[in-house]
Structure formats: structure tokens, C-alpha cells
Nucleic acid binder design. Structure first.
Lengths: 205, 205
DNA sequence: CCTTGACGAGACTAACAGTCTCGGTACAAA
DNA sequence: TTTGTACCGAGACTGTTAGTCTCGTCAAGG
């Protein structure tokens, strides 16, 4: 059994309320806070579970009792901090909705402490199948939101009937991740403006 | 001193030709071949240096005598196999040149044994600063080639004078890497067609 | 034939993920 | 109050891997 974040929240047993000591909420918070701090301060070297446990003043087993892997802790810490959803706006204009979506995406990833933590998380995901799958699921929900937004615009006649929405989505998230991970070009508001116009109208300025 | 691949080719000493036993060319080939084979057959688990050395019938120190890190061996093996350059075509039509470039890029990464090896290499680069820098340098040359192609088209009046070439490049390589690494959508010729038209003329079909 | 440096083999160190165990502690039911 | 259960911090332990070091050997030249 897993909650909306993919975390394990299976109760110890069905049909028996609970016996014994309860989960220490302070320890949970300390672990998430320590994980986020280490993720944020990571200078490229991987964040270790020992370091998280030590920084949280917690035994390593307490981490593994509540999370299935290191990646799960890191992802949970980042989601916890992100405050969740970027709302999908509905202004009635495809151009405005899309521009708001792209700007929010760029801003959300750009502002500290998200940026270094997210980069560190991607590095971890490269070697952690478990974490990679969780991130794939998380990003799929964002792609779906963008798909809805574009489909509304197409139905409203602001995009050709046979427009390739999947390609537009991949152009937007492709540019985002490519620039975010390589860091060779900015993800500022000017870039969001130009990307919005480019995917809707081509390279005309 | 490094050659065009970033490999260490520093001679042992200046001003002294060479004494002692020479480098075993057969061992070099065996290492590169073994590395490529393991990279190709990798099922997601990382390729280890011990495995490369064992498969090549070579001591591990022989690997580290000629390459600075595991990542360097893997990158060298892939470059060695790629046969190098995708030529930049010049048909006189921006659309045709760009389409050829994109198709060649998609095909080059797609056909085995490149695809699994390249994906494994990206995974390694996530934890290997040395390798990440080499890959950045390698991809920068491809971006530069694409930039030249687009600049020619712009100078020929096939793109607006103030078109954002950097954004077009990032849309192309962004879509490529995003789809290549996530694998949620194909990188076939149809996709190349649509991407070419999309970056040049917007979502009209 | 002697010096130099590459070679195969493999021991060794240092990290790190994840498991296991221990003595102790909170909580609730009996 | 007693007793059983599950969580707690601590840290030992296993297994894997990158990279280093050392050994005895082998080839190329002076």
C-alpha cells in the first residue's frame, strides 16, 4: 500500500489496531530536513544514508524502517519541501495558460533550494531503479497536466486539429531538462516567453 | 597533454625518445572491445572495471595505466565505435539540411549497439565528474555544428534575422535526449519530420 | 646483457547501500 | 502494575566497486 507520493504507509497488520510504541514524528521530520539540507548543500558528491542519519541524530535502521531505499527518502524530502502542485491556470487563452505553466515550471525548479537538490536527485536516479521509477511517475503527472492544457487550446481552435501535442510537450520539457541539467543557458522569464511563442508559432519573433 | 578525444597521450618524458617495453596495442583493442561489449550488453547494472579487465584478459592496472578513470574508457570505447562525425550536409535548403541532421542524430543514437551503451554512459556520467566533463565537451561540438547549419539558413533568409538559434538548438537536442533517456516516445523518421517542421514553422501540420 | 617500462595477477584501501542485532524506551491492554 | 509489542539510537557486519599498490615477468633497446 502506498500513498500519493509512492511512500510506503502499509499498516503493520490488518484487523489489529496497533500495539507497541508509535512512530516518532520528530524523527521523521529530522530525517526529511536533514536529507533536504544535505541534498541542497551537495557539491556533486552523493548524499549518503549514514550522513542523513547522523545529521538527523537518528539510527540508520530508523530510516530504512520507513523508507524502502535512499532514493525514496530523497524524493520524499524534495516533494515535502516543494509544497506540491503548480496549479494549472485557466485564463481562456492558450498562450497565456501555456506561458504561465512554463514560467511556473522554470521558476519552481530554479529557486533555491530546489535546483541543487533536484540535480542531485537526478544523479541518484541514474543509479537507483526504484527512484527512477518514482520520478518517472511524478513527471508523468506534470506531462498530463500540460497535455490537458494543450488539448483545451486545440479544442478552442487555438491549435491545428492535428497538432502533435506530444511533440509540443516534449519540446517544452526537453528544453527545460536539457537546460536545467547542462546549465549552459538560462531558464529565466525571457526564455519562458520565447519558448512559449516558439512552440505555438515557430521561430518568428 | 590530451588528444581530440580527451584521452591522455602524454609521452612519458620530453627529450627522451622511449626506453623499455612498448605499449601493447592488442591489449588496448581488447580493452576497448570488451568495454563496448559490456556496455552494449548492460542490463542497467553498471559496467565494472574488473569485468572489463577480465573480459579483455588484461590486468586492471593496464586499464588505469592508459585511462584516468572508468568513464574515460567507456567514452573512448563508444567514440571508437561511432566512427566519429555525422557529416553536416549542405543542400542549400535549410529545411533539408536540418532534416538530414536531425534524422542522422536520431538514427545514430537509436541503432544498436549505440543505444544501450549511450544510456549506460549517461548513467555513469551522473556520478563521474571527469566523464561528465568529457561528454559535455563532446556534445558541445555537435551543438556548434547545428548552430552553423542554422546560421547559414538565417543568413540565407530562411529564418528571421532575430531568430533565437540557441532556443532552436535546445528544442532539438532537448527533445532528442528527453525521449532517448525516458523512452516514452519514439525517435523515428516520422518524429524527425515533425520536429523539423515544428522548430521551423510552429505546430502547423 | 642490462636498464627501462609495460604486462597479468591479485591483494589492498576506502566508500557506500542495505541488513542485522542489541539494549533501551514508549504505549496500551490486561 | 505488569507484560507484550513495536519503535528507538547505535553500531557492527556483508557485499560491491573504484582506484592504488606491489610482485614477478617479459619485451625492446643501448
Amino acid at each position: 500500500m502506498r500513498d500519493e507520493k509512492g511512500m510506503d504507509v502499509t499498516p503493520p497488520r490488518m484487523e489489529r489496531p496497533h500495539t507497541g510504541r508509535r512512530r516518532n514524528e520528530a524523527a521523521r521530520r529530522a530525517i526529511l530536513d536533514a536529507a533536504l539540507r544535505l541534498l541542497t548543500e551537495s557539491d556533486g558528491t552523493p548524499v549518503t544514508v549514514d550522513a542523513i542519519a547522523r545529521a538527523a541524530g537518528v539510527g540508520k535502521q530508523t530510516v530504512y524502517r520507513w523508507w524502502p531505499s535512499k532514493g525514496a527518502v530523497l524524493l520524499d524530502a524534495l516533494i515535502d519541501q516543494a509544497g506540491q502542485e503548480v496549479p494549472s491556470p485557466e485564463t481562456g487563452s492558450l498562450r497565456d495558460d501555456l506561458h504561465a505553466f512554463i514560467t511556473a515550471t522554470f521558476d519552481g525548479a530554479q529557486r533555491p533550494p530546489s535546483a541543487p537538490a533536484l540535480r542531485a536527485l537526478v544523479r541518484e536516479a541514474a543509479h537507483d531503479v526504484h527512484l527512477a521509477e518514482m520520478m518517472r511517475a511524478f513527471t508523468a503527472t506534470r506531462r498530463a497536466a500540460l497535455q490537458d492544457l494543450l488539448a483545451r487550446g486545440r479544442d478552442g481552435g487555438e491549435l491545428p486539429e492535428d497538432a502533435d501535442l506530444g511533440l509540443i510537450i516534449d519540446q517544452i520539457y526537453g528544453v527545460f531538462w536539457y537546460r536545467f541539467l547542462l546549465g549552459h543557458a538560462p531558464l529565466d522569464h525571457a526564455a519562458a516567453d520565447r519558448l512559449t511563442d516558439s512552440v505555438l508559432r515557430g521561430p518568428v519573433s
